[in-house]
Write a protein that binds this DNA or RNA. Structure first.
Lengths: 202, 202
DNA sequence: TGATGAAAAAAATATTGAAAATTTCATTTT
DNA sequence: AAAATGAAATTTTCAATATTTTTTTCATCA
């Protein structure tokens, strides 16, 4: 991208490496906001902040306080830890998520524990590692404006697609789009799945 | 969709259930053609057939012969078996792929065995089950106009992203987009991955 | 200094006309 | 009769432009 330079001041600013708010919280917020189809103005209003401020925050130009982070986490039903990573190698972190360092997406643990397999938010789809505890169930059927697919790693999950019942076992996979979905783990052990959602909903 | 009815003949035709060429080969062909950005005319020419004929075939309005199927399979580097499924429950087949009945995508087995985890072609992304034999390697680095992600189920795979080397082990995941990629299984056992590609390339 | 609010810039969203692709179907071929 | 063609009719796609919305920038305020 070419940048038109007008003043010396701006030059200095642009030459500085972007101050990464420990991982790029701003970019995460932008992706989360976009996944909800909210505008800067929508989110700023909710947070009781100005549009200009949010614009700078999302571009990692200015830091935000812990209070704001907490508000945002709550707003998107994410644990605050979601926004903090301790990646050793930053080039690796751009592409790889190691088994032990996934970002946990589950706010209040309750039967379903989800963690992110993609290195960051954004992109055409989202890949999630999901653990369904025994007895866990989706409270009520849902429909999402997404295309979703999954693969069973362990255990067994019962998936209802438009009221049809399918029992999925390790190695089984599925895909649906715009269907009415619900699920339950009727087994005695965790059901572990890989779940792909396009576009991301987080 | 509303259908304007003009003649009695047409009414009868429309009321008939669509004659499924054992699984919907036509739809597969359409998806394959589209994934290559070919027009009906492009493919028809290659097959030495008329555009009108291909249009009917792709819409499952008319059958095609085994010769044509063979040509098409070869054209897309797929085994002929790819186009035939023996799904018991047709509603299930629309959503679920059972562990044992995946469609095999590998034409000439050679280190990498891929099979389709999605119930059919088409959609925003493709999910593939990939088995990399010990020693198997990608001949030369490639770049694809896609966003791709993966998850390691078993074994170990070395992935090069823009010349950076990453050794991936079970539970590790990755994602890239527009990078220069190559890979090799340096281990002594199969490396088994789930691979997601958007949009599909087949 | 952190944040605001309004002007400037950029991006997304419609509109439209033309071109390309697809479908339909009467006719020809086998 | 069934299979396949080719051309007309229809639909879709694409590019160019105007409009509106969203985002960025930055002078100024608390």
């Amino acid at each position: 991208m070419l940048v038109k330079i007008k003043h010396d001041k701006k030059v200095k600013l642009l030459q500085k490496p972007p101050l990464r708010s420990s991982g790029k919280i701003g970019s995460d917020i932008r992706a989360l906001r976009r996944s909800r189809n909210w505008t800067l103005s929508d989110l700023a209003k909710t947070l009781g902040r100005s549009v200009g401020w949010l614009s700078q925050v999302e571009r990692n130009v200015s830091e935000l306080g812990l209070d704001d982070i907490r508000n945002i986490a709550r707003l998107f039903s994410l644990p605050v830890t979601f926004f903090f990573t301790d990646a050793a190698d930053s080039n690796e972190a751009a592409y790889i998520v190691r088994s032990g360092t996934r970002r946990i997406m589950t706010d209040t643990p309750k039967g379903l524990a989800e963690s992110l397999l993609s290195p960051d938010l954004g992109g055409a789809f989202e890949i999630v590692h999901s653990v369904f505890a025994p007895g866990a169930a989706c409270p009520e059927p849902f429909v999402r404006p997404t295309e979703e697919a999954g693969y069973v790693l362990e255990g067994s999950l019962v998936l209802f697609i438009n009221a049809a019942r399918f029992e999925l076992n390790p190695g089984d996979s599925f895909r649906f789009s715009g269907e009415k979905i619900s699920w339950i783990n009727e087994g005695a052990v965790n059901a572990v799945l890989i779940w792909v959602i396009a576009p991301p909903v987080y």
